[in-house]
Write a protein that binds this DNA or RNA. Sequence first.
DNA 1: CAATTCACG
DNA 2: ACGTACGTGAATTGA
Length: 888
Amino acid sequence: MTTKNKKLLLFDGSSLAFRAFFAIPNFDTFVNKNGLHTNALFAFHSMFKTVLDKEAPSHALVAWDAGKTTFRTEMYGDYKGGRQKTPAEFREQMPFFNVMLDAFGVSHYGLVNYEADDIIGTLAMQAADQGFEVVIVSGDRDLIQLARPNIRVDITRKGVSQLEPYTPETIDEKYGITPQQIVDMKGLMGDSSDNYPGVTKIGEKTALKLLHDYESMEGVYDHIDEMKASKRKENLINDKEQAFLSKKLARIATEAPVEVSLDDIVRQDIDVQALMTFYKDMDFNQFMSQLLDKTDNQDLLSEDWEDVDYHYLSQADQVSAELFSADTMALYMENLAKNYHEGQIEMVAWGSKDQIYVADANFILKQADFQIWLADVDKKKVVYDAKRSQVMLSKLGLDFAGIQDDVLIAGYLLTAKDLSKDLAELAHEFGIDQLAFDESIYGKGAKRALPEDQETMASHLARKIAAIWQLQSLTQDQLASNEMLDLYQDLELPLAKVLAQMEIQGVRVDRKQLETMQAEFDVKLGELENDIYQIAGHDFNINSPKQLGKVLFEELELPVIKKTKTGYSTAQSVLEKLQGKSPIIDYILDYRQLAKLQSTYVAGLQDFIQEDHKIHTRFQQTLTTTGRLSSADPNLQNIPIRSDEGRKIRKAFIPSHSGWKIFSSDYSQIELRVLAHLSGDDHMRDVFQAGQDIHQSTAMKVYGVDSNAVSKNMRRNAKAVNFGIVYGISDYGLSQNLNISRKEAQSFIDAYFESFPKIEDYMDRVVQEARDKGYAQTMFNRRRYLPDIKAKNFNVRSFAERNAMNTPIQGTAADIIKFAMLAMDKALKEKNLQARMLLQVHDELIFECPEEEVPVLEDLVPEIMASAVDLSIPLTVESSYGDNWYDA
DNA sequence: CAATTCACG
DNA sequence: ACGTACGTGAATTGA
């Protein structure tokens, strides 16, 4: 018999279930239909399944503590004393862990008088003796004492989502001791969570030092007389008894009277039916459908979704106006390409609740009745992704009108999540779990393709229509009760059409211009490369942070400023600190900048120039957490401007007609103005109303000096603090930005809040509101949910708090420019202007127009942008124009 | 596919 | 002590 496939997984059920409970602290959002809390079950399930899939053990057991008292309590009455009572929300979930485990085909076991640890220790040693590979998973670091050459101990980190593996090697690296010495360490230092004392004043550092010198606790006491007189020595002597008791308590039993043998814990097959029932009982809809997709157990599908009836149309005589007579119908057009400017519509489905039609796209899109229906504004359509539908039809020259609802946009507003990849993801988010994921129908990656038989796809599309139909009423109800209908109907839904037009319009790019730059950059890059190799003494890949790190920090022995998880950091901020230490640094900085421009922009953009000499980006309307747009394929919201070299790339962006101009208008300081409005800060308002320099006046306030006494440096610092405020300030972040100490940064922040008390009040208020309601919101009721705002972990919680401060500011600014875009679109049409809106870059709108329209836009655009919404602070807009984006 | 880096607001 | 400034997308390396 080979030992190769013998692998035992031992799961510390008690510690992991408890940790799972605290991994999802907002447990009130995890309740099933019977009112049972499910957060611990949910988190435990996620990690358990991940580990089971990853380790694929032949044998597995989940160990539980069997009761409150154990042999350890006999030795020490206060063992694990002082612990808080188990929360009722956790206790009620306990019976269901084993139900889950039974369904997974994994055994579980508890032993009277012993802890889960002892069961694990005993079985681990038995299995290791028999040549098993053993993996132990626990949330309790004490278990690392069990690590051996073929026993690995994985300890959870960050809730339960990550595991840190411990082997004899890693323990040696981290602590410099063997696994067997862990009990000596625990004995000396004690354990506050298990409530045993160890030796007074000895913590981890001291315990390790003593063990390094004397190997074991016995060794320490054998040599106690040789130690110099000290408080520590006294403590060691006084606490000797306690220390040996603690060591005993820390030692995990490896010969507990465990009644199960390795043969008893062979892993069984998953009981699909039992698991489905468990998922259903717990309302774990997402897992249910994953299981369905995996097992092909379509017969487990519930309710009247079992077979969604549809008519498949393939002949002209099957199509008539009658098919399109309903007032409102759902419409879905499948195009497998993520970028809908590419690919083609493969199949179309439409219909209402009880009448669903599906047809091949090639056929139906040519039918007059279908085209008439599409263009009829009075025939309402409910879609998933209006912009996508609009663009695809427009490319075919088909008119599309009467969009009543877009369930993607509605879903995005309700969840602030990106659900644009797959309708099934949106459906599942709203508890509709009878729709398969596209991945299970079309495959993924290179294997993504149309299914072989048409019926599979047709039925999938019919189900999508059913899902859209159901989602419409669900989302409309929720939007109404969240008071988000205005945001949806008056802003996002009409905006989809405007964005579609902008994408279709595209922006013209001069390829020649880019080609010339490319040749120039190639020469410069070649020169820099040579200079760098010369100093390094050999060739290497400068683009590889790993290789570059080796050259800089090992070969050239430059000081290490910062490390990443995988090695030395070679980020720009680090390199800048090394400037002057070696001439190679300046060359690398130049090389980096040029290589970035070359690959991403000069060369990269050329790949997106279409036959019409234009680039058609996609504005993603349902992606960001704050309500901003994003731009992709390619991203036209991050075209270089900050460096002189990079800015020249904008020369390639030109009007699509000769004699036309590029016209650009941007809001100045929109986020700070929004902050002034939302906080009601009098001083800030006065500054903006008087049209003064906000950073200058912030500097005056914070430093308490006159306008003429504000130095360049003072203004720079004030500007950084203003930015920091908008981001949700932290002393650490500000210190990084200004390259000052944290202490100095903190005193800046204190001075700022002293000068602007209303800003501080406002920040406190939004964080408190996020804690109370669970979300932050913009002026126009856009929400961002922040479940981590109550996290125990400082970093996780702080991040959520900064989000709470930043989201209303960034999000309201995003709302404002969206309103401006709608108004601009309307104004251009009403005034019959030829000017076209091309791009939006967060606080900036870019147009192209005939030269004679420039004077019109110079008045119109600022007027419309400034009056897009009503604020207590004036919005100011600056405009410019030129023959290309650079000159504008 | 994750990690690192860097372009923009 | 903790170790991040907010929001994005794309290129590259290397497992």
